[in-house]
Design a protein around this nucleic acid. Sequence first.
DNA 1: CCCGCTATTGGACAAGCGCGCAACAGGTGC
DNA 2: GCACCTGTTGCGCGCTTGTCCAATAGCGGG
Lengths: 208, 208
Amino acid sequence: MARLSPDERRRAIIEATLAVARRNGLGATTVRDVADEMGTSSGLVHHYFDSMDEVLAVAFEHAAGADLERARAVVAEAPTATEQLDAFIACYAPAQSDWTMQLWLDAWAEAARRPALRNVSQRLNRAWQELVRSIVADGVTAGEFATDDPDAAAWRLLSVLDGLALQVVAHEALIGRDEVVAWTRAAADRELLPSAPAATRAATRTRR
Amino acid sequence: MARLSPDERRRAIIEATLAVARRNGLGATTVRDVADEMGTSSGLVHHYFDSMDEVLAVAFEHAAGADLERARAVVAEAPTATEQLDAFIACYAPAQSDWTMQLWLDAWAEAARRPALRNVSQRLNRAWQELVRSIVADGVTAGEFATDDPDAAAWRLLSVLDGLALQVVAHEALIGRDEVVAWTRAAADRELLPSAPAATRAATRTRR
DNA sequence: CCCGCTATTGGACAAGCGCGCAACAGGTGC
DNA sequence: GCACCTGTTGCGCGCTTGTCCAATAGCGGG
């Protein structure tokens, strides 16, 4: 087939891997599937990656890293912490409702048996939590939010988001994307809004 | 080997399956592993179950069903809704922090490719939510809790619990069991304890 | 134009998988 | 004590998996 530069080929392998993972799941993605997706031989994959574990890890890092970067960009555009959190939820939840959450689910489960994948998964999850934590912390110093433990609040919010999105992908039809967004926003309200000044918050929030 | 009655043998297969799944993960549990665990031949497994999918589904249902029954019993003993919820969280979280949560994680991920396992997983998850929902609903009528949507509140609480427990098992060391229990209780407080402004804001939001 | 570097091939390899089946064995009733 | 019933065996089948490697092919510099 076509002769590609190492960088191009690596990228092609990663994208082919994600295409297959999207169809069959990350855990059921094989070397031959990836090669077939590219239209090349299977040996080529191992010429660029030491093991299948590494292929999956790099591919997952590529996809999930892009999502993270996108979320960071969306958050950076919002002026207030309240709007940042809303933007984050809106950006996170629908993305997860597609095949992306199935990807995460597979990665988490597979992480128990694949060292490289476990490393990537842990690192990325920590990064997501750090993003939420910083939003919450900023909101607290700005007086928009009130919480005694931003770290715990961030974990809880992320857990609600993950848990709800997981229900959508694994047990379809019980709840949908809209519920994930609306319910998570409701959770954020109960979690972070101070009880005293209600009027100003309601105004900024409903403006969207 | 020893000659067992069909019922005993089925039970032995289920327990052997769970023993292997505990070690290697549910998705990586093979017919031969199960047979070796029992000390019998592999053909025996297929004499009692039509497919490996069914073996995994039945084994998972056995383990998860027992957990559910245990949670129901613990909840039934508590007098007030508040104590019921506390008991539920305390019972749920530590159990999930062991290998049980890895079992759920594997089951969820594998459900995408194994029909029988998917059925069981969906049914059980709905049962867990129903348990929490009934506790919340009882608490509302008893005046202990305040929420505009017990169903959503139950999903959120379960999501927090699942999400946090998942962090423990998949990304060990970031948070521990104690945090799962404490943080989920804090989430339940913020979610359910009567506090006027939160409820009204949530109502306006879900209406969008 | 050709040569060499290297991306790519394509299959060998051992191991492992789910599944099915003819043969075997060991309690049970006659 | 014998025959029958059924739980159990042990292996074979076809297929898939990750990994590896000698052989090949095609582009770029001399």
